[in-house]
Structure formats: structure tokens, C-alpha cells
Nucleic acid binder design. Structure first.
Lengths: 112, 112
DNA sequence: ATAACATATCAATGAGTATTGATATTAAAT
DNA sequence: ATTTAATATCAATACTCATTGATATGTTAT
């Protein structure tokens, strides 16, 4: 077999700058933006152990109630947590699978 | 040995809400804030392979020159990259050790 | 029906920060 | 000495997003 052609310039581009990884980068960035807020990261931590109602989460964070609600909504909209209503209370739990997926995605860009 | 005392309420707190992990959280958050900017994350990716001068980095990112300089400064101030001047050009390289440390720290809060 | 509790929504404000434009610095080339 | 190329700095603007205050929704208890 005779190699006459130069290697495609594709190989020169860093992986993160290739066209096909653009969507992945954007998702990784969205994820990072969401967890780079101190209280949201803490909420994820708090929910690691087991599901908790808002008032339990609230006990650990010195924040006004509506602000906690807001952060919970952001996390939920991104599918990092999910909720169920039980009587007067709302319980939130971590979506571990989703979180793990995002951590894996992130590692693609960071791992050496 | 007689156990009379209740377990310290310390154990009830999620790990991320304990007093001694506050500094670590703050550092993890600072790291996240820095890498949650698309172009900065890309710069880290671009530098994974090997050190590059600004104009090489610039080729891969569609950004004005001064903005690249700015992001490089942010990354450098945080010690994620370092630079050396060679003639007219400035070469930046990834500080792998530092990056790895921050990834590890982050995993403490995210790992399940 | 009303009150009390738990949580969510929404508009307005404010803080932080990416971006831009203009200009400065530094080193090589003519 | 002047010009050109590579990079950095700085002030001003624009924008995103966390925070706040006020209010709404839904559920249980009286």
C-alpha cells in the first residue's frame, strides 16, 4: 500500500475544537455553570445521602426560602434532581445517573 | 465501655456543610467559575497536547486577540497555566499538576 | 370557612464579569 | 530610527444571573 496523501488537517485540531464536539462542550459548560454556584453545589452534596424535603435542605443553608426554591428549580430543570410531593412537603432527590453522566462528560475535557 | 452520650450532631450535617470544608468548597467553586467559561475550557483543552503560543491558541478560537489575552490572564492568575516568553512570542503551557489537584477536589464534592 | 404551614412564582434590583475599543508594550526586521 | 508583528492593559459597556420583596399556590388542621 502506497501512502501518498498527507494526513488530514483534522488531526491537527485539538479535540475540543472539532465541529462534532461543539454540542458536548456546550452541555459540559451548562453543567459547569449550574454547579459553579456555591449553594447549588451544596444542595447536590446535601442530597447525596438521601432524599430530603425543602425545609431540611433549608436548615443547612443560610438562605431565604424563595432563593432555595429558585436554585432547586434550576437543578431540576437541568434534570440533576427530581421531586415528589407528599402532603404539604416536597421531597427532592439526586438523579445520580444524570450527575455521573455529566461528570464523565466533563472528564473528557479535563482528563489528562 | 458505657455509651451514654448521644452522637454529636456533627455527624448529622452533610459533609459539605461542615465548617472545615468551607474553604475547600470555596476553592472548588472558584475553579468551577473559571473553567465554566467556554473559551477558557477550550484553552485548557488546546494546551493539553503541548505548549502553544498565543497566536496558535488564537487560531482555534474565534475571538478578538485582547479577549484571548484576558482569558489567559485569568487562567494564569489561578495558576492553571504558565507562560514563557521566547522572542516576540509568548508560550503558554498547562500546569497539569494543579489541574489534577482541582479535579480531585471537585470529585470530593461530586463523586457518589 | 379560615388559619397556618410549606413551597413556588414573579418582577425588580444589584453584583459580578465577559466583551469591546482604544492604546500600550516589547521584540524583531528593514 | 522606523516599522511591523505579537501580546498585554485599561476603561467603558453590556449582559448574565443571583438576590430580594411581595405575593401566589396548595395542603392540612381547626
Amino acid at each position: 500500500m502506497i501512502k501518498t496523501k498527507k494526513k488530514l488537517s483534522n488531526g491537527v485540531k485539538p479535540s475540543c475544537c472539532k465541529n462534532n464536539s461543539n454540542k458536548k462542550i456546550k452541555r459540559a459548560i451548562d453543567f459547569l455553570k449550574i454547579i459553579s454556584e456555591e449553594n447549588r453545589l451544596k444542595i447536590l452534596c446535601i442530597l447525596k445521602e438521601k432524599e430530603k424535603c425543602v425545609c431540611e435542605i433549608w436548615k443547612h443553608l443560610e438562605l431565604p426560602q424563595n432563593l432555595i426554591s429558585h436554585h432547586l428549580k434550576v437543578l431540576k430543570d437541568f434534570n440533576l434532581i427530581s421531586s415528589r410531593k407528599q402532603g404539604i412537603k416536597v421531597f427532592y432527590k439526586l438523579n445520580q445517573r444524570v450527575l455521573i453522566e455529566y461528570v464523565k462528560l466533563l472528564n473528557k475535557f479535563l482528563n489528562l
